[in-house]
Amino acid sequence: MKLTVNGKVHQVTEEQSRMKLLRYLREVLNLTGAKKGCGIGICGTCSVLVDNEVKAGCQTTVAEVAYKEIVTIEGFHAKDGGLHPLQQAFIDHGAIQCGFCTPGMVLTAHAFLLKHPNPTREKIRSAITGNLCRCTGYQQIIDAIEAAAVYYQNVPISEQ
């Protein structure tokens, strides 16, 4: 079985295929960006992208996503390898406090903006409803996503 994570193909053993994706990423691939928050798929802290759809890493087995494209926060960046405008927006708007929920929050926002590059604040709220944050009042997260939308409106999808 094969798994593509951040563009790199990994051979998955039988035992690994039964692991939860979050554990596989963290313990086998040492990608610790995705965090375990609640372990039951509610908080969104372990969110990763599977073919550009948000999945809870703690609720998904490796076998379920075999042969699909997985993107974790470590593989999310601008084309030149620098900060993606969405990441920069999170920084500029103070959308990060302890940082624990940030990777899941950024990836969820990205998947949303790919589909909805012209969101209202109301739409942003409903898109992020599955990602909890205990530090912020969410307002600065909404600000960041709203600001980053401009980029998604102006750059072709293939470039995003």
Binding site: L31, T32, G33, A34, T72, I73, E74, F76, H77, L83, Q87, F90, I91, I96, G99, T102, P103, V106
Partner: peptide, 10 residues
Amino acid sequence: AIRLHVKGES
């Protein structure tokens, strides 16, 4: 550190 957070490297 904030940059590291947003890249998942913290």
